[in-house]
Write a protein that binds this DNA or RNA. Structure first.
Length: 521
RNA sequence: GUCCCCAUCGUCCAGAGGCCUAGGAUUCAGCCCUUUCAAGGCUGAGACACGGGUUCGAAUCCCGUUGGGGACGCCA
């Protein structure tokens, strides 16, 4: 029997980072065992589905490189993979449940159910439907319908005994049947609910392993009930713990961005991302520009492999030290039995560390390829880049080295792409390094040396400065900062000589002149 | 409220009775390197929630307490 796993997103418009981890586990498990990983669209709730809300989810999967063997846009032998298009099958299943007595028509109104629920809560016991409006015979149904009521279909759950099953991460699990609800599987309007659809689909799509978030653990008995009532062989279950919020044990939620922003590492990656988005004139939807959502990482230039590697280790480990995994290594080493039982908090700082290492491992060509689109969006480089632009990007990325931690960080160096007159001065740096006694004349004299320096490369420039410093009888620190601010506008940046060489003599001289003029005025 | 689950450095993991004076990663602090900023190197701080058992021996097994969390929909 070949292993088949699935991830079943409902089209909400965004891909949650916790969802990705669950999907990754599914993907890895299927790949590990030479099986198939499929995507199924859980869109039974028409009201909740916004148009085109599946797009960002599929894009996210593609970006991450988590390919699906069957599902939306790729089809497959069991198509369609949209629950909204499988009503025929669900209708059959409901008829079968009804016929076997595993389900019944129910005529209670929402208000009546709510009243029973309220009573139960008042009496401090778990709610259990009285079955007061249950119709098990056509005669009973006719009586209710004569009163204008419409039937939903509920599961007739056992009221005694236990539901026991083995969970691949949690071990043996038991639930008391008597505590289970008579869940609705078909609404009064004839549409079907998740549990029914899920049980039917897992069977129809030949899913062998249901690997999903632990939130679904308590749903398992009712799904098992449906599965067995329908005569299907149940899949194996593996319930993965949820991903908790940074510095907390609460479930990570997209809606609590404001609260997470109080966590300094979370705030740091958010702020960095926001700065990149702003500089690259990226139109960000506040809805998804959120480190809880995968889109965020794509937008600011993270490496998918870094995200995946980090997520893999959030609740799973191989041993006490292996942390770096390539795709192939992940696939080769992954196993369900090393998934933790406790929830794990999302740690943005550690994700950033993985990203940094991954970026460092990339060759210059890859880094240039990652950085270029950000410069294009910011309007610094044309699409496609001119030859000179291409070379400039390469030089800057090379010189910046591992200062570029996410691809969007290349926008920290606009001065290499701007016209001389557009370079902005950092006011504080300008005052500190240029507006002080001796700075201007020193800079002017150095300009003279610079004008004669040839070749204009980093090594020669460095020699030029050292000669200048010796001749003046000063320390290098007395002039180098002034040069940096004059030429780049900033107090910080990569190697000064590399920077000067990249800009070339004309730009360097023009910028020094501009700074000098600014000082004189 | 009812049911269920979880519990090792701030965080993520290792640990399945002696290998643990608890290991790795990340974060943080300090030092080194250095024209700035990064990176890198070195050093350091930092945990078995508590109480009882079981055992020659417990972070590991059992019970309880405490704390934290999840599920309780005609949502998925």
């Amino acid at each position: 029997m070949t292993v088949r796993t699935r991830f079943a997103p409902s089209p909400t418009g965004y891909l949650h980072i916790g969802g990705v981890r669950t999907a990754l586990f599914n993907w890895l498990f299927a790949r590990r065992h030479g099986g198939q990983f499929l995507l199924r669209v859980d869109d039974t709730d028409a009201e909740r589905n916004v148009a085109a809300a599946l797009r960002p989810i599929l894009d996210g999967f593609r970006w991450l490189g988590l390919g699906w063997d069957e599902g939306p846009e790729v089809g497959g032998p069991y198509a369609p993979y949209y629950q909204s298009q499988r009503s025929g099958r669900y209708a059959e299943a409901v008829e079968q449940l009804l016929a076997s007595g595993a389900a019944y028509r129910d005529y209670a109104t929402g208000g009546e159910i709510q009243a029973e629920r309220d009573t139960a809560r008042r009496e401090k016991r778990r709610f259990l439907y009285s079955r007061g409006w249950m119709a098990e015979t056509d005669a009973a149904a006719a009586r209710f319908e004569a009163g204008g009521r419409r039937a939903s279909v509920r599961l007739k759950m056992p009221r005694e005994g236990v539901c026991a099953f083995r969970d691949l991460v949690r071990g043996d699990v038991e639930f008391e049947w008597g505590l289970e609800q008579d869940h609705v599987v078909r609404r009064a309007d004839g549409t079907f609910l998740y549990h029914l659809a899920s049980a039917v689909d897992d069977h129809d799509f030949a899913i062998t392993h249901v690997i999903r978030a632990v939130e679904h653990l308590s749903n398992t008995p009712r799904q098992l009930f449906i599965t067995t009532a329908l005569g299907y062989a149940p899949p194996a279950f593996a319930h993965v713990p949820y991903v908790a919020a940074p510095g907390s044990a609460e479930k990570l939620s997209k809606r609590k961005l404001d609260r997470y922003l109080r966590h300094h590492e979370f705030k740091a990656i958010y702020d960095r991302g926001a700065a990149i988005a702003e500089r690259s004139r990226l139109a960000v939807a506040p809805e998804t520009f959120n480190p809880v959502v995968v889109d965020f990482y794509r937008a600011v230039g993270y490496e998918p492999d870094a995200l995946l590697n980090y997520l893999l280790l959030l609740g799973w480990s191989l041993d006490d030290r292996t942390e770096r995994f390539t795709r192939d290594e992940m696939v080769a080493r992954f196993s369900l039995d090393r998934i933790n039982r406790a929830a794990a908090s999302f740690d943005p700082g550690k994700l950033a560390a993985f990203q940094e290492r991954r970026m460092q491992a990339l060759g210059i060509d890859d880094r240039v390829a990652r950085a270029t689109p950000f410069l294009q969006r910011a309007g610094f480089v044309r699409t496609p880049p001119a030859e000179a632009e291409r070379a400039r990007v390469r030089d800057v990325v090379q010189a910046a080295g591992d200062r570029i931690k996410v691809a969007g960080d290349v926008l920290d160096y606009p001065e290499f792409f701007q016209a001389d007159a557009d370079v902005a001065y950092d006011g504080k740096a300008f005052d500190k390094r240029l507006r002080k006694d001796g700075a201007a004349p020193l800079l002017r004299r150095f300009r003279g040396r610079l004008a004669e320096t040839r070749p204009f490369d980093a090594a020669t420039l460095e020699r030029t400065l050292h000669d200048f410093v010796d001749a003046e009888g000063i320390r290098i620190g007395q002039v180098i900062h002034a040069i940096r601010v004059a030429v780049t506008g900033k107090a910080v940046g990569f190697g000064l000589f590399e920077g000067l060489a990249i800009l070339g003599p004309d730009a360097c001289l023009a910028r020094i002149d501009r700074a000098l003029a600014q000082l004189a005025s």
